[in-house]
Design a protein around this nucleic acid. Structure first.
Length: 269
DNA sequence: ATGGTCGACTTTCGA
């Protein structure tokens, strides 16, 4: 079966439910992982999402901040939400695809504040600690069940490669592209031999972005983007990947999120 | 020119 899996930091699902509708009607994902829904579970627009053809919904919400939701046309088995680092923040949901030995992790890694120094900025320390905890969790069993393959998608808030940012040199001291964050993400990637599916389809020497700041006067003209959103799989699924699409046009939709959707297609046995 | 713009339990904080 073909699986079209999408991830999108929506930056308020209630404000942008109309953009979710536009996206799913045009791009027809089977599973859509949203981050930064910015509402408690009770305020999630379940009825609107069901009406779009996604009756299987897992939500981990939080008042005002963060929050993730996984929407599906296909039956899902909830696999729980991990409270990595004990912060109590809503940043992770795992689901299993019904009838498939595939687990999908929807993640929103902390942004980390403005100053890239854990001493001066506790949020940066929290970000690094969160990635370390994830790394240990996957290495210790989170993805160790070899009877299942895993997909990890979401807003990782790190642009690891030189061409994941508009200027490697100018962003070396900017949170999201500092060497210490890249080292942390590299160790996370090694925790289950994760495959960076987006970069299977777009060579590492080509620029690739999923986020453009709201602060630019003209995001398209300045094009100072970063690849903060990712789709990773365990090695058993690498051969199942068929395509990756970054829906850059969504950044130009009316009242957009600052992130755009990323879609990966898989052919599952 | 160290700015700029978003969204939320909005006059502040996180991104």
């Amino acid at each position: 079966m073909k699986l079209r899996l999408a991830t999108w930091n929506i930056n308020s699902v209630r404000l942008r439910i109309g953009l979710v509708e536009r996206f799913v009607k045009t791009f027809q994902p089977d599973v859509l992982c949203l981050q930064e829904i910015k509402c408690v579970d009770e305020l999630f627009p379940y009825d609107a999402v069901k009406a779009l053809g996604y009756p299987h919904i897992q939500v981990k919400g939080q008042a005002g901040y963060h929050g993730v939701a996984t929407l599906s046309r296909l039956p899902l088995e909830p696999k729980g939400t991990e409270n990595f680092c004990g912060s109590g923040e809503a940043r992770h949901i795992a689901v299993a695809l019904g009838g498939q030995r595939v687990i999908i992790h929807n993640l929103y890694i902390p942004a980390g504040g403005d100053i890239p120094d854990p001493q001066l900025n506790p949020k940066f320390g929290q970000k690094l600690a969160y990635i370390r905890t994830l790394t240990e969790w996957f290495a210790d069993g989170g993805a160790a069940d070899t009877s299942c393959q895993h997909v990890m998608v979401g807003d990782f808030n790190v642009a690891p490669l030189e061409h994941d940012v508009w200027s490697h040199k100018q962003l070396l001291k900017v949170v999201s592209h500092t060497p210490v964050e890249v080292e942390h993400l590299t160790r996370l990637k090694a925790s289950a031999n994760w495959v960076d599916v987006m970069r299977k389809y777009v060579p590492e020497d080509q620029k690739l972005y999923t986020w453009w700041s709201y602060r630019a006067r003209d995001w398209r003209a300045s094009n100072k983007g970063r690849r903060l959103d990712h789709i990773w799989t365990t090695p058993g699924l690498e051969g199942a990947a068929r395509s990756v699409t970054v829906v850059e046009e969504a950044r130009g939709w009316e009242q957009p999120s600052d992130h755009v959707p990323v879609i990966a297609e898989f052919e599952l046995n």
